[in-house]
Amino acid sequence: MTGDLKNKTLENERLEIQMLLEAIHQKYGYNFKDYASAHTKRRLHHRLNISNMSNYAQMMHRIIYDEDFFNSLLLDLSINITEMFRDPMVYKKIRRELIPRLKTYSFIKVWHAGCSAGQEVYSISILLEEEGMKHRSQIYATDFNELILDKAKKGIYPLEVMKTYTGNYQQSGGKNDFSDYYTADYDNVILRQSLKEKVLFSSHNLVTDGVFGEMNLIFCRNVLIYFNRQLQNRVLKLFYDSLCPGGYLCLGSKESLKFTDMEDKFEPIADREKIYRKKRLP
């Protein structure tokens, strides 16, 4: 058992945070109660510090009365850090091992769940185009955050990140010159319009919304780490129900099905790249 101090400081803090999350849920409909609590706490704490407030009760009041404040908090709570062709070896694996099998279908559907600002969506769009699959595929890109979804639709990224993206693209086995895919001005690049043709962006909340359609491939990379185990299990069930038999699930490099209820429903295809396949028999 731990001491009084822990009870006082930490328990009170936890209670305040619980009430704040409840307020967000009731007022705005976003449910963060099943997010990984250490993560939520850090993000709230960060916002508390930079907003010069002294406690979460004060912050809760502000959340209820100030929608702009809530919107900035909403961005804090979702982590939107990613790259084009992030973890290049994953894309290499997809190109070499998944694409030949996906080519046996007349038409494929791909779902990017938690697509953030779209970097990884356009990466798969480029990959499908280079593999000659573009005209028989549909990509669905979803996120719960409308602001970030607008950014994704635009496909505009700062010029300074292109060096990393280009390096990733080359390591992933890209077949062309990466600069063929964008036009640059002084500060930004805009991706080629044709990369957006087969992409449908829409709002979808993994916490509350349901099955999305019958997919051949689902990407959900570095999203589940922000959920607690219960919510992870719920979302993995949702993915299971949204995949066709033999469909693929790609998780983030440090995510796995190992500590979830769904481990025996999938078979690992690539251990390092965290690619799983839905088993054909239940």
Binding site: R14, A36, S37, A38, H39, R42, R43, I79, I81, T82, N222, I225, Y226, R229, G252, K254, E255, F259
Partner: peptide
């Protein structure tokens, strides 16, 4: 690397 209240590991790609 974060430690959760229930003594499990949580990873994050935050800033």
């Amino acid at each position: 690397l974060m430690v959760e209240q229930d003594k499990t590991i949580a990873l994050s790609t935050a800033e």
